[in-house]
Computed example of a mutant assay.
Amino acid sequence: MLSALQVCPRHLLVCEKSSFLHEKSRHSTHVETHYYNCCVSILLPECGLLPGKLKHVIDGMGSYFVVRNLPLHEFLTQEFNDRFIKKGLFYALSYNTRVDQDNCAAVLPGKLVLSVNKDTYEELGLEGKPSLYSGKPAMRHIVTIDLTDSAMSPGGKKFQRVNWALTEKKPLTFDFLLAWDNSEEPSILSYFSKYAVKECPFRISSSVSKNLHSPVLKSEELHGKEGESCSATEFFEWLGAVSNNIDCDNESSSFISSFCCPEPNILIEQTHLCTITGFITPVKIQQLVNQLREYFNEPKLSQWVSLMVHGFADSPISWKESEHGFFKGGENLYSFVIFNNEDYWLQMAVGTYDGCPP
């Protein structure tokens, strides 16, 4: 029993530094290919009130939708393809499904992804691949359908096979979270009106911490420098604690909690934490990143701000089309530390059942 308790689940944290001004900077790619986000937290040191421009972006993020009992074959129709797939960035994620136990589905720009159990996979009869995390023999399979493939046009053999599988052979119905980033086209609310669909506002909360010890950061010191700067890894742990309102003013010898702010650190008079919760698309996150870059257009007491993004624990994919699993907690998240000189740190973390972030 003791040896089992000593085994720590594997996790990955990838840290890199660059500049938004660098022509080969990958910051936009990382944001755009992490499709399913449930929470964004913004931390502003030496700030008691959200700046007007940032507040305007947050308040203008719009809404997302929940639709009940939506059949998967609705994503295959020519009308859906013409209205949504071809004209913007449409996202859907099955709601209240567990990726390690239930059938799950997701729509990312141009593709439908299914994560299904062995019985469902065999009943569907569609081409797929064994899940990386279901053991041998495989008890789960991943099916990816390219909705932009010319063979998926009505009348095509591939379309007929997929449509028959999802309408007659094994009809699959889910509750879905839906999001759409093209306000000029017909809305989700009207298109799915024959189903039980509800518009949901984002939940926004703010808090201000007084006299908070904060790590000293230097943009060029990703791995830290003793006595001068904390490392990206140390900062990532501290940021997680602050975002969850965990007390960091402990002694290393404390029995209850030995976690404390890494050295070197400074005392910050007030720190603003704003958290946005809902089905948040990459476009909205990119807008927040751009606004935080402009935050330093006027002189500030702090030299950095941060933005942390949490992915859904039960989404079938994390970055790009990498399969995502649950295991202990389903972690898949990333954070930006944005410095006043346009440098940034990017930290990407995943749990046991996930591939290395790109």
Rank of each mutant, 00 (worst) to 15 (best):
E184R: 08
P171C: 00
E185W: 04
L288S: 03
H272N: 14
Q286R: 13
F176Q: 03
S243G: 15
Y195K: 06
L222R: 04
K170V: 00
V216K: 01
Q270D: 14
E226I: 08
T277K: 12
L212F: 10
K218W: 09
S206W: 04
V197L: 04
I266P: 09
T233L: 07
E251A: 08
T281R: 10
W238G: 15
I204R: 08
K170S: 00
G240P: 02
I256V: 13
F279R: 10
T271E: 12
W238S: 14
V208P: 14
S231V: 08
L288P: 02
V242R: 13
K170G: 00
N297M: 09
W180E: 01
V242D: 08
N290Q: 11
F259Y: 13
I285Y: 00
L288N: 04
D181P: 12
N244D: 14
I246V: 14
S214E: 12
L172A: 01
N245M: 13
A232P: 05
E237P: 03
E184I: 02
I204H: 08
K169D: 00
D249A: 14
D181S: 13
K169H: 06
Y195F: 15
K284M: 11
P186G: 05
L267D: 02
C274R: 08
E221R: 00
T233M: 09
N182R: 12
L177R: 13
P186W: 04
D175Y: 06
G278P: 07
I256N: 11
P201F: 03
T281W: 01
D181E: 15
I268F: 10
E221C: 04
A196W: 00
Y195Q: 06
F236K: 07
E185Q: 09
R203C: 02
P215V: 06
Q291H: 12
S231G: 10
P264Y: 11
S243W: 01
L292R: 01
H272A: 11
E199C: 05
F259H: 08
D249N: 15
D249M: 08
S207K: 14
E228Q: 14
L292S: 01
C200L: 05
E226S: 14
C200S: 06
T271I: 07
G224S: 07
L177C: 05
V197I: 14
H223A: 09
A179I: 04
Q291K: 10
K194W: 03
E228I: 08
K170H: 01
E251V: 02
Q287R: 10
N265S: 15
T277N: 11
C248H: 13
P282S: 03
V208N: 12
T281E: 09
P282Q: 05
F259S: 05
C248R: 12
L239Y: 00
C260I: 01
F192T: 05
L222P: 03
R293H: 02
S231I: 09
S205W: 03
S209R: 15
G240M: 06
L212I: 11
D249K: 10
R293W: 01
S243H: 13
K218V: 11
H213G: 06
L172D: 00
T233Q: 12
C274H: 07
T277I: 12
E269V: 06
